[in-house]
């Protein structure tokens, strides 16, 4: 339980850091902190393979890519934030978020789920167990997720197509209603 609380604080701190940090690079580093805390969570839940994959894929590959992009694209850019039109929305959103999150946490702690007591299936969390599930009964999900990734690849092609120059529409101002 103590380990859980410490890890939860680290993970939450990382998550808050991602959105609070001024520099995109700091955000990315906070995200790594969050990802590593989640990886240790997976180990506590005896899902070793997921923990390893989390560290290698997310903290390793994706975040390195992320850092490269951030350093290449934002070097020397102005990092001041645009002015907000709606005063006090951050404060309101923060209070609401804390209330909802706190409420859900209280519900979760007071009424622990029943499935916890069921015990783990054979080979849970290791590579063999994952493979047998994913390529056996759950193969249909794997195929569907593959199609989702295909969509993302098509999307990269579509959105990176060179743009024709279109002059901006004059109606942009009167659109708020």
């Amino acid at each position: 339980m103590i380990g859980f609380v410490i890890l939860a604080i680290i993970a939450l701190g990382g998550g808050i850091g991602v959105i609070v940090a001024r520099q995109p690079v700091h955000s990315a580093l906070f995200l790594i902190m969050n990802i590593l805390a989640l990886a240790i969570f997976y180990i506590l839940l005896s899902a070793e393979f997921l923990a390893a994959a989390q560290v290698i894929v997310y903290a390793g590959a994706i975040m390195v890519l992320f850092l490269f992009v951030v350093t290449l694209l934002t070097a020397g850019k102005d990092d001041r934030e645009p002015k907000e039109n709606l005063a006090g929305q951050r404060l309101t959103a923060g209070i609401l978020a804390v209330l909802v999150g706190g409420g859900l946490a209280v519900v979760g702690v007071l009424y622990p789920s029943r499935a916890i007591g069921l015990g783990l299936p054979h080979n849970f969390g290791n590579l063999r167990g994952m493979g047998v599930t994913l390529w056996g009964p759950d193969f249909i999900y794997l195929a569907a997720v593959a199609l989702m990734l295909l969509t993302a690849a098509v999307g990269v092609l579509v959105l990176n197509r060179p743009r024709r120059q279109v002059k901006p529409a004059p109606r942009l101002e009167e659109r708020e209603s």
């Binding site: 999900y141 997720v145 989702m148 969509t151 999307g155 579509v158 529409a169 942009l172």
Partner: peptide, 25 residues
Amino acid sequence: VVLFIGIELLSLPLYILAASRGTGE
């Protein structure tokens, strides 16, 4: 799982299609 995959499989192409015109709007 199927519910969530369906929602995502429906939404992802529509995100891209919505932006496919290439204008600011």
